[in-house]
């Protein structure tokens, strides 16, 4: 039982850290630029396609990952310069519509280039097997994902909490006008944050590619989860994104795994079979509603 619990906790951690990579970029774009970006999930999808295509061309997962992330960063730069820059000053409705349009364009373009069937991305040969930890086997590749997630989280912490750029970012998130008035190049800062967010998306997409499948529409479902994460964590807060992502990842994985068993012990089998999966799948939304009820600004509000 403890083994099962440990394994599920690792799964939850892995899922949570990948959510964090997505939520980190999203929360900064929201927080600093006050811009809603529905197309964040599309960057994740396009990034994964870039990684898969580059990995196939170079016949190496790691080269593919690097090239794909770089490609997504360039795409992010182009998008920021041409479209998003126009959107910051618009109302939320325009932002929703324009980024929804981007989703449509991204999905269709990917379908046009790579076809409707999912691309397969294989993990490096050396990582495709299991490793033994604490008496049981765990997929080596998932451990690598966890390592990547922790490294990025640590890096972001140093960057945001300790560096000068990070200070500007935090200042921008809590009061944009004041930051601008202090002579910070907010426009350049926006571009940098957006590009960084796009690169993180591609990193998450590329890392998850071998576990899932690289396919059209993969961004949409994960986008909603990223939203839930930053609502729980508080918009604009990196710390909130990390905590929110870990909460969502763990609650979702453990709920899926343990709730049906738990309900079977408490309720008649029939009712448990009906209720279990339903409850497990909406658990994080219930959690979000509860958190919002008590803290409408999320757990770590960036704006005082």
């Amino acid at each position: 039982m403890t083994q099962l619990f440990l394994e599920q906790a690792l799964n939850g951690l892995q899922f949570g850290l990948m959510l964090f990579l997505l939520a980190a970029g999203l929360t900064l774009v929201f927080g600093i630029m006050d811009c809603i970006n529905l197309a964040h999930g599309s960057l994740y999808m396009v990034g994964a396609y870039f990684v898969a295509a580059a990995a196939q061309a170079a016949d190496s997962f790691w080269i593919g990952l690097g090239a794909g992330v770089a490609g997504a960063a360039v795409l992010g730069l182009l998008l920021e310069l041409t479209l998003f820059r126009q959107l910051y000053r618009r109302d939320h409705l325009s932002q929703v519509l324009a980024t929804f349009a981007l989703i449509l364009i991204a999905n269709e373009t990917v379908r046009l280039i790579w076809g409707p069937a999912p691309l397969m991305l294989n993990p490096p040969e050396a990582l495709s097997g299991p490793v033994e930890i604490a008496g049981f086997f765990y997929p080596a590749y998932r451990l690598v994902i966890i390592a990547f997630g922790l490294a990025v989280a640590g890096l972001l912490y140093l960057l945001v909490a300790k560096s000068r750029v990070g200070m500007w970012v935090r200042a921008g998130a809590s009061n944009r006008e004041m930051t601008e008035a202090l002579g910070i190049n907010v426009r350049g800062l926006f571009t940098a944050v957006f590009v960084f967010g796009a690169a993180l998306c591609a990193l998450a997409g590329g890392l998850l590619g071998p576990l899932l499948a690289v396919q059209v529409g993969m961004g949409e479902s994960v986008l909603i989860l990223a939203f839930v994460v930053i609502i729980i964590g508080g918009i604009g807060s990196i710390r909130g994104a990390l905590v929110g992502a870990l909460i969502v990842g763990t609650v979702d994985t453990l709920g899926r795994a343990l709730l049906p068993t738990l309900l079977r012990a408490l309720l008649p089998a029939d009712a448990a079979a009906t209720l279990g999966p339903a409850l497990a799948s909406i658990l994080i939304y219930l959690l979000m509603a509860a958190i919002l009820f008590f803290k409408p600004q999320g757990l770590f509000p960036a704006r005082a």
Binding site: D34, H92, I224, F227, I231, I235, P277, I282, Y285, L286
Partner: peptide, 28 residues
């Protein structure tokens, strides 16, 4: 409606998603 701006957009979205998952997992 207790919230404003992007929060409102995302919360309505999240509630709708909750309904979606509720229905796709309700076998009845």
């Amino acid at each position: 409606l207790r919230t404003r701006g992007v929060y409102f957009i995302m919360i309505t979205l999240a509630f709708a998603q909750m309904v979606y998952y509720l229905f796709i997992s309700a076998r009845a």
